[in-house]
Design a binder for these strands. Structure first.
Lengths: 162, 162
DNA sequence: AATATTAGTTATGTCAATTAACTATTAATC
DNA sequence: GATTAATAGTTAATTGACATAACTAATATT
């Protein structure tokens, strides 16, 4: 399997400070898109993390809910693949969501080894709210951009990763 | 101290697969800049990681060299702040660079508790090469963009994080 | 029916990163 | 000017993410 670059939890690999400090400046890195991407991404991520924390959720859990919503009945292996994480990691993630009655595992009739995963009504409702929160977070973090610039940025980013 | 969102090592916090798989699609997340940023950032980061691996270096070490180069004689506390990591993490980082004779710690005359950190001649030479590598990596990862688009992307990203 | 494969889980080991505790030097206060 | 407080760097210990391997149950293969 590939080195697996998941879009999950922590975000380290020191490149440079994202927040405060008028401390040492780099400038060697300033012209690298990868560096700018990292700083911008960290900023948005931190904002989202703090907003989701109100609901005692992490970005990973939010994305799981979104994926289930978009793919109702999918199996855990699919989920692992979509998240680019290993199957064992899916277990505690789903356990948590299930314990909070946001998602359910339903035994498959044809293949009793696997589960179909679905959102509960509560999960669907919460997800709607989370989407709004995420959108607000996005706007807040990119407040320095005009609407047109925001659209252009999204377009360029998609072009890069697609 | 702030929650500290360093630009260091791992990059998890599952949002969605960046690489292969025509598996489950999200689309709920597709319009979020934060999501696009994450995927793009991960793509560029992976590329850089594999290129630096040739020199047995990680992005964090590269950025340390760049910061020292830009701020010769800085102290470890400054370095920690610039990297948005905790002082204890600086120690093994510098130990490694020093053992490879890329950087040196020099005791301060006025304050014998602290060190001034400098690049060695070898470190300076290597850094020049690393900058080229990072630039190539950048271009490679954003090959889908035109020159103008690349400049625009960098401009927008700076506007976001600055 | 015997064997191999697959879905999910549990268990184990590794490694990064934060926190706390320690050493030495310097600064502050009485 | 001696005692106390603060600072730079280090070491130690804890936590937590993540991967790998081992296990259980069910299905598929021969």
């Amino acid at each position: 399997m590939a080195k697996s670059s998941k879009l999950a939890e922590p975000a380290a690999e020191a490149l440079l400070d994202a927040s405060d400090t008028q401390a040492p400046m780099d400038s060697a890195l300033e012209e690298l898109i990868g560096y700018a991407l990292r700083r911008a991404q960290l900023k948005l991520f931190q904002n989202l993390i703090s907003r989701l924390a109100v609901h005692d959720l992490r970005p990973a859990q939010f994305s799981v809910l979104a994926i289930i919503d978009q793919n109702p009945g999918l199996m855990q292996a699919d989920l692992a693949k979509a998240l680019a994480i290993e199957p064992p990691q899916v277990v505690p993630l789903l356990n948590k969501l299930e314990s909070r009655a946001l998602a359910v595992r339903v035994r498959c009739k044809p293949d009793k080894r696997s589960y179909g995963i679905f959102l509960s009504k509560t999960g669907e409702t919460l997800l709607k709210e989370l989407k709004q929160i995420a959108t607000e977070s996005d706007l807040d973090s990119t407040a320095a951009l005009s609407v047109a610039e925001r659209e252009e940025l999204l377009r360029l980013l998609k072009k890069v990763y697609q």
